[in-house]
Amino acid sequence: MNDILARIALCVESGKTDKASPYPPGMKGQDGADEITKLAIEEGLGPARILDEALIPAMAAVGERFSRKEIYVPQMLMAAKAMNSSMKHLKPFFQSGETKRKGKFIIGTVSGDLHDIGKNLVAMMIEGGGWEIIDLGVDVSADKFLRAIEGNPGAFVGLSALLTTTMENMKKTVAVLKEKHPGIRILVGGAPVTREYCDKIGADFYSPDPQGAVNYLKQFAV
């Protein structure tokens, strides 16, 4: 791997955002993902290479370590923060169309549920997988999901629920979305959700951790 790309990947994996960031202590005072990405672009490394060869593999490594319980949520969030500090340099290229995202992913916590940590983690990891995120927030009605789907044809949908009692709203939301858009692929997750429940309510995919969702989406990347 190109040395600069390797350094960006290391910063993201380690959660090293920028030079001013004291985290991780072992990299204090060193350039972070922010400065090194800027340098990479100045040196002519294309945004697609930065995304495909540094950010995506680095976030995948973070996701795998989280799945294996080698790191906790704080480390994952620091990695996501470092990824965002790199991604801000790439966004102009996405907006101009020079660099393409892998696809669009609409995500939200279902109606009646205010919990957003898990939803945010999944959103960050999927964004790190190269996808554009449309985050609808928490307590999202089926109608709001429908409007987002209609505004973003071809998008995938992620539903989150943390309470056993709001899982029922997940079921209703899946039913409404599938009725209007039978071909849409819906991913579900959250502490009480299981693969069996996913199958029962007619959703397409369940993963107990964010990386599972990233891996599932890879087959559909454009």
Binding site: V73, L77, M124
Partner: peptide
Amino acid sequence: DGDPLASYIYD
């Protein structure tokens, strides 16, 4: 402010 970790800890 772009600090998801602090946000998580405050939560």
